[in-house]
Write a protein that binds this DNA or RNA. Structure first.
Length: 138
DNA sequence: GCCAACGTTGGC
DNA sequence: GCCAACGTTGGC
């Protein structure tokens, strides 16, 4: 199983919006970046991801699970773009801020720290554990 | 609101 | 295929 991080502008699609979709989940659509798309193509059902709020909040809100592998993005006719479906699994008791990630030496190689612009990105297993610990999750 | 970083586009 | 120009993103 692999770990990922999904970034969203809370004004467009927030953690609360994701939770409201329940176990059925929702398409992670609108991605127009090859690196991000390639990540989604690698995802398997059951993979877990962090849900990150960009812009003002800049914090990891909780955990989502991949419930459907990559398929065509319903928001475009362009066949290049694909997306997975994800459902909310649970919130972090204490959301983890970008500043916390940057301050933690164990997360210095995290993609979120090194390339915060990539909208869907891989997370290492150790990084996953560290962030869950910081968030009081699990 | 600014600016740096990055990705994409298009001319050559 | 290279590279300059441009647009977008996102942290600050």
């Amino acid at each position: 199983m692999a770990y990922w991080l999904f970034k969203s502008e809370p004004g467009e699609w927030s953690w609360d919006d994701q939770v409201a979709k329940g176990d059925a989940g929702e398409e992670w659509d609108g991605i127009r970046n090859y690196q991000a798309r390639n990540c989604m193509r690698q995802m398997q059902v059951g993979d877990l991801g962090f849900f990150y709020h960009s812009q003002r909040q800049k914090r990891i809100m909780g955990v989502v699970e991949v419930v459907c592998t990559a398929h065509s993005d319903s928001t475009t006719d362009d066949p290049r773009w694909e997306c997975v479906d994800v459902r909310a699994v649970g919130p972090f008791p204490r959301p983890v801020t970008l500043a916390q990630c940057k301050a933690d030496a164990r997360l210095s190689e995290m993609v979120l720290v090194r390339n915060p612009r990539l909208s869907v990105q891989p997370v290492g297993e150790e990084e996953w554990k560290v962030v869950c610990e910081l968030g009081g999750y699990g």
